[in-house]
Design a protein around this nucleic acid. Sequence first.
DNA 1: ATATCGAATGCAAACGTTTGAAAAAATAAA
DNA 2: TTTATTTTTTCAAACGTTTGCATTCGATAT
Lengths: 343, 343
Amino acid sequence: MNSSRPITIKDIARRFRCSPSTVSRALNDHPAINEDTRKNIQEYAREVGYQRNEVSLSLLNKKTASLGVVVPTISNYYETAVIEGLHTILQPLGYTLNICVTNENYMLEKEYLSKLLSNRTEGIFLSVSQETYDSGYYEHLESVIQRKTPLIFIDREYEDFETSRATVDDYHGAFAAVEHLINIGYKRIAHLKGPNGLTVSEQRLKGYVDCLKKYDMPVQEELIINTNFKVESAIVPTKRLLEMAAPPDAIFGVNDQVAIGAMRVVKDKELKIPQEVGLIGFDNSPISAYTFPSLTTVSRPGRKIGMEASRLFLNQVNGAGDFIHESIVLPSELVIRESTLRI
Amino acid sequence: MNSSRPITIKDIARRFRCSPSTVSRALNDHPAINEDTRKNIQEYAREVGYQRNEVSLSLLNKKTASLGVVVPTISNYYETAVIEGLHTILQPLGYTLNICVTNENYMLEKEYLSKLLSNRTEGIFLSVSQETYDSGYYEHLESVIQRKTPLIFIDREYEDFETSRATVDDYHGAFAAVEHLINIGYKRIAHLKGPNGLTVSEQRLKGYVDCLKKYDMPVQEELIINTNFKVESAIVPTKRLLEMAAPPDAIFGVNDQVAIGAMRVVKDKELKIPQEVGLIGFDNSPISAYTFPSLTTVSRPGRKIGMEASRLFLNQVNGAGDFIHESIVLPSELVIRESTLRI
DNA sequence: ATATCGAATGCAAACGTTTGAAAAAATAAA
DNA sequence: TTTATTTTTTCAAACGTTTGCATTCGATAT
């Protein structure tokens, strides 16, 4: 009774005692259709709220106009900025973004990819989960490659694959951050690093290490402590750092969240920022400009990454012949604020 | 040449010189299929990476197992928490979430809804955009209702519609926040409110106003200033407040972001928190616990809202006969921290 | 040998739409 | 009126899969 089956082209055809093809053509303003017929049909269609079934069209044309965006999380500023960038470019072109959150979980990532393929998604933007990284499995990606579905890596890349990728230059960002600390005169710089195995974590760590080396400063294991990107994960590590016999005089957090967590601990210890302890983050999240003191950080162009990734995808789709795989690396930029500005 | 058309059931049938139906049944473990045939077909299918075309199935079964989530933004903690909640319940049931970000834009919202309907989405979770609110247009929702596609309002509700909704009790949350300030002894309480027209903003404002009235405190227009939920939008208003002849001794921010922006300004003026100025936010975002001083706030159960909304959806889908429309209001809870704790 | 049964497979329709080609209808020219 | 031409409409196939109902084939019972 209340079935309320959506109106189809056939329903309309029955109503006008004509064939479905006529209705289809009328609705699509095909020139071969009589003016009156067209008007009547279009009016009636509007009246009864006809909306064409895109599923059937997808089947017919093998085009779905939908894209998969597979990311570990959407709880950070950076990730949402990337999505916004993708959206900015792709939405106007008629693409629908199917956002899949893996929670850093390998199985979920695998499931999502498989589902996206089954749904005949036309392209996939992927930032692999931490578990995937750790495990080193990548079979679930094979089927994407095999199907020649355009696959764009975002941010976390997979060295082994021949695909396009858009990443931020984490290495030089971290390098610049540490160099800045050294220039200011900080002597003992700690690093609250990200989870092991992630490119992001490792690149920033590498930037930190290499910069210290460049300036002939010792790289000390005990000054490098793991976090998981979240505010609270910075608390215990920072306490440990500050309670050392020889505590650091500056802390480089793997992201703003971690740096802000550290900031809290430093203040609890009643140490002056930036005089006694310098602090620096990564991401340039909106809040970093408004902490007290404001946080020196490295900006990551998330929106731009999203837009560049879109471009990479479009290149593959429109590119005649073989795909051209490109790697784009956008620079990150040091944003100096109060948390490091001692004179 | 590199067309790489996905393998279909027909391809497999041709390979085995049998009919597509046999292949279909074999792949689905139909009992009427010969054991050997089944094995051979399944093995071959795995080998060539067959993946069934869900689009065709959707067409056949009129089921897409995809749900639309239409939200104004995903840049806030709360929204992402809601999505996480939806995800938690619905992903295991095989649903795909199609997340659409409207950027508070009416036209985009309309387009998304239309597209979701065209794609035969089985349900829509909607938090209407600000523009929709302001304009008061709701025709784009009519077609959703007409199609009897389950529509669940999240958070921002539309009084005029007969639909299910899951919202947070903003009113009492705000009331409790202000009451807390009054209990502590703050005498002149300002409110940095959210954009006009949004239920969220208005409910919190109402809670603020009603609480003041209850305690016979004057409601002063000049102590109520607009913001747009973002950190930076709190800066100028807070300055204006603090430079008044009779400045407030407490500020209630419409969310944590705004409160944190205000916190920054208060500190710049070298006023003591909470002694000279009390501060309170809304959302209990992760960072609010780690500002210095930590921020008193009202927690909104975003994850729970998402889970409850899922439940409402499932009720509609599984419910025999007519839909049962439910309204769920979850309580918000005061979280007392340092920014209001003066003795 | 014939009827009966069971197992395994095939046929055909269905989902909603588009589209080239053919057919029908209307109009113009001879 | 007949033929040629143009306009308008219909037919049928296609996209990939499932499924109720035949159909086939071999085996068993009569």
